[in-house]
Design a protein around this nucleic acid. Structure first.
Lengths: 152, 152
DNA sequence: TCAAATATGACCGTATCCTGTCAAATATGA
DNA sequence: TCATATTTGACAGGATACGGTCATATTTGA
């Protein structure tokens, strides 16, 4: 059942359509990520947070991670505290701030991320082969540009 | 561990990047939608469900709406029941199914949607002017294509 | 035709996410 | 320097969103 009959005559219409598509895709992605993460005893969100911590170019605080992920500070805080209880991340003293500790992934978490990273690439590769590489890049850049407009 | 993986297939790398960008954008969009919706006494999610019901080309069931939104059936069901309690949607008998009622928005909800639609269009127009219309369309189509890959 | 598979709504529990609030730590600027 | 503003972590409450399970309705296919 196709519930939509929208046409995108203008850039504005196209943007409204893009927003809707972004919401719909996100739901599917979250479900897919949850399924992958479950295989190693994680959830999609915990994987995302761990990944963000691991990918940080320098030791980051919870607030840094939250800003990068686009989530509220307290959302990440709660997940991070839970991850710390499971020894998946460690809090290290921050010479610049007494309360805002620096976060790093443990070796235990690093192993899980390695497995998940492999699965993620395999999955991404499968999807990528069905689409023009340039379109994927344009989409990525466009989403980034829209996000920047909201980051104030 | 395959260290060269990240440079073997650029389309795959772009796809991984797109996934990450999709997650980050979604968080921002949800927050923005929440703020808009709050002005008329709604939440972002309730707005989305109402909008989906209102935009349906023909009377739809909860399951139809859920599939269209990309959400789990039960997620939409819960929100819809809540909306019904607030007289924002009505359940109508479905001649084709005794349990799967058809959903329609009430006039009360239609008025709220009118206001929100205006704000959404204004917002989308502002963002759209900073980007090439073709890029927006490519992005939208690409997200849709990725979503289709996950809908099986 | 009719048994099996699928679809649906209700109910329950878990995991997110967000906002709001408070106290402590840090940054800012007059 | 010092009052003010901002940042941060802890805590609490509300709104989603999901999976599991059960009973009922519908569809499918042998």
């Amino acid at each position: 059942m196709n519930l939509s009959r929208k046409t995108t005559d203008t850039a504005t219409d196209a943007m409204v359509e893009l927003i809707g598509e972004s919401f719909r895709l996100h739901s599917r992605l979250q479900t897919t990520a949850d399924q992958m993460a479950r295989e190693v005893g994680l959830t999609g969100t915990r994987w995302q947070v761990l990944n963000a911590v691991a990918q940080a170019t320098r030791p980051a605080t919870i607030s840094d991670i939250a800003r990068w992920m686009g989530l509220a500070r307290q959302s990440v805080q709660q997940v991070a505290n839970s991850l710390a209880e499971d020894s998946l991340i460690d809090y290290q003293p921050n010479p610049k701030h007494q309360r805002a500790s620096l976060v790093v992934v443990t070796r235990k978490a690093a192993k899980l991320l390695e497995q998940l990273d492999e699965q993620r690439y395999t999955w991404a590769n499968t999807v990528a082969t069905t689409l023009p590489a340039d379109d994927i890049r344009v989409a990525s850049e466009t989403l980034r540009a829209v996000r920047k407009e909201l980051s104030d």
